[in-house]
Simulated scan of single mutants.
Amino acid sequence: MTVGRVLVVGAGLGGLTLAHGLVRAGVDVRVYEADDGPGERSQGYRIGLAPPAMEVLRASLPPRLHRLVEVTSGSLTGPGLLFDEQLTVLSRDLEGPPAEARAVDRQVLRRILLGDLGDRVAYAKRLAGLTQDAEGTVTARFADGTRATGQVLVGADGGNSVVRRNLAPEVGLVDSDLCGAMGRTPVTDRFLRLVPGRGTMVKGPGITLMLGRMQFGREPSEAAAEIAPGLDMPYRDSYVRWVLLVPPEHPAATDPGRARDDARELVLDLIDGWHPDLRDLVRSADMSAVGRSKVYDRPMPSWPVGRVTLLGDAAHLTLASGGNGANTAMQDAARLCASLAEVDRGERELISVLGAYQDDLLERGNAAVEFGKQALKRFVPDTAASQ
């Protein structure tokens, strides 16, 4: 007995990793994405992928796409620096990702993950509802009036997951009372000196600025043209990513707004008097990639086991301070893929497998949520300690 068709709602990193793994395992899969196309909105900044996540990509992706991940990724070796606001070195041993981890750009990685899936991915499919019937199928209903039917549905639709609201409508986001302002600035020698290694933290009075370098091993569009001809990959400059957590008492913490220039000016106002290199870093940002948003997380309780399950942020939304959201989602994808492949080979029974997957997902995912909360204390001690 095969597992049948798997419907994946959400074309983020976790959902696309799952789709590739299922294709490789010979399982029928379709992905439904709410966005109108792959480039409709920004998909984040630099992230660090630990060795287990890199191994998931190696096992899931076609060789040429995995090679593209490798050659475009950047190093996370070197010191982790802690500065004060005038760039006085306070420590050269700041905790960070393991040396074997790799820096990847989230948007570039998503473009790579979309490669070779072709018409298995459908866009402008905003989930309106879903039903499970007694015959062993799940039907997804989309806002455009279309439907899709399969034997399993996986909610990989992010922190505001519609699938999660159907499974556990009582579970909401947990507000951290913080707002993050963020951006990326094209690299120069001057700005790279601020981040010579795996990451830099700048501690000012009541404010923390986090810096990370995304220095591509090869420029992504050039590498894609050689390694994966036909893959849609826009040109991307290497950059320094910066993130500032707005203090809870600041008006922007509760009213984050949307204006990109407002976000940059907010950061410049908060770091007034800081070292000129830091102010110029923010001032020189790529304005297409500046923004701010509220910071949430959410642990997840169990839900009734059936043919609908969750993956990644849809199940366990973690604070960015933990740096483990994408890594955890990829582990979810690998474990769910392996389990569904066993069902497809007739080795295990579907509902039993999904129940075991849920237990594992919640144990690992909720631990990742807690790790993010504890890590937040490095950035905002008083706020994190009170949660």
Score class of each variant (00 low, 15 high):
Met1Gln: 14
Thr2Trp: 05
Val3Lys: 02
Arg5Met: 03
Leu7Ser: 03
Val8Leu: 01
Val9Asn: 04
Val9Trp: 01
Gly10Leu: 06
Ala11Val: 12
Gly12Tyr: 00
Gly14Arg: 05
Gly15His: 00
Leu18Pro: 01
Leu22Ser: 03
Leu22Gly: 05
Val23Asn: 08
Gly26Ala: 11
Tyr32Trp: 13
Tyr32Asp: 04
Glu33His: 08
Asp35Lys: 14
Pro38Gln: 07
Glu40Pro: 06
Arg46Ala: 15
Leu49Cys: 07
Pro51Asn: 09
Glu55Ala: 14
Leu57His: 12
Leu61Cys: 12
Leu65Met: 12
His66Pro: 03
His66Thr: 03
Glu70Cys: 07
Ser73Gly: 15
Leu76Val: 14
Leu76His: 05
Thr77Glu: 15
Thr77Tyr: 02
Gly80Ile: 12
Val89Trp: 11
Leu90Thr: 09
Ser91Thr: 04
Asp93Pro: 01
Glu100Arg: 14
Arg102Asn: 10
Ala103Trp: 11
Leu109Gln: 03
Arg111Cys: 13
Leu114Tyr: 08
Gly115Tyr: 08
Asp116Thr: 14
Asp116Tyr: 02
Leu117Ala: 12
Arg120Thr: 12
Val121Gln: 11
Val121Met: 12
Tyr123Thr: 09
Tyr123Gln: 10
Lys125Leu: 09
Arg126Phe: 04
Leu127Gln: 11
Asp133Trp: 10
Ala134Phe: 05
Gly136Asp: 13
Val138Glu: 07
Ala140Cys: 12
Arg141Ile: 02
Gly145Glu: 13
Val152Ala: 10
Gly155Leu: 06
Ala156Tyr: 00
Ser161Met: 07
Val162Tyr: 01
Glu170Gln: 15
Glu170Pro: 08
Gly172Thr: 11
Leu173Asn: 12
Val187Leu: 13
Thr188Glu: 03
Asp189Gly: 15
Leu192Lys: 09
Leu194Met: 01
Pro205Ile: 02
Gly206Asn: 02
Ile207Glu: 05
Met210Tyr: 01
Gln215Glu: 15
Gly217Pro: 12
Pro220Trp: 11
Ser221Glu: 08
Glu222Lys: 13
Ala224Val: 03
Ile227Ser: 01
Leu231Ile: 02
Leu231Val: 00
Leu231Lys: 05
Asp232Ile: 03
Asp232His: 07
Tyr235Cys: 00
Trp242Glu: 08
Val243Met: 11
His250Phe: 01
Ala253Leu: 13
Thr254Asn: 07
Asp255Tyr: 03
Asp261Arg: 12
Arg264Lys: 14
Glu265Ala: 11
Glu265Ser: 14
Leu270Thr: 00
Ile271Tyr: 09
Asp272Leu: 04
Asp272Gly: 08
Trp274Met: 03
Trp274Thr: 03
Asp277Ser: 12
Leu281Gly: 14
Leu281Ile: 15
Val282Lys: 00
Val282Phe: 10
Ala289Val: 00
Val290Asn: 05
Gly291Ile: 02
Lys294Trp: 04
Asp297Val: 09
Pro301Met: 10
Val305Lys: 00
Gly306Gln: 10
Gly306Met: 08
Thr309Ser: 06
Gly312Leu: 13
Ala314His: 04
Leu319Glu: 09
Gly322Arg: 07
Asn327Trp: 11
Thr328Lys: 04
Thr328Met: 09
Met330Val: 09
Ala333Asp: 08
Cys337Arg: 10
Cys337Thr: 09
Val343Trp: 03
Gly346Ile: 07
Glu349His: 13
Ser352Ile: 06
Ser352Met: 03
Gly355Ile: 02
Gln358Asn: 06
Asp359Ser: 11
Leu362Gly: 08
Gly365Asp: 07
Ala367Val: 05
Ala368Tyr: 06
Gln374His: 14
Ala375Phe: 03
Ala385Thr: 15
Ala385Gly: 15
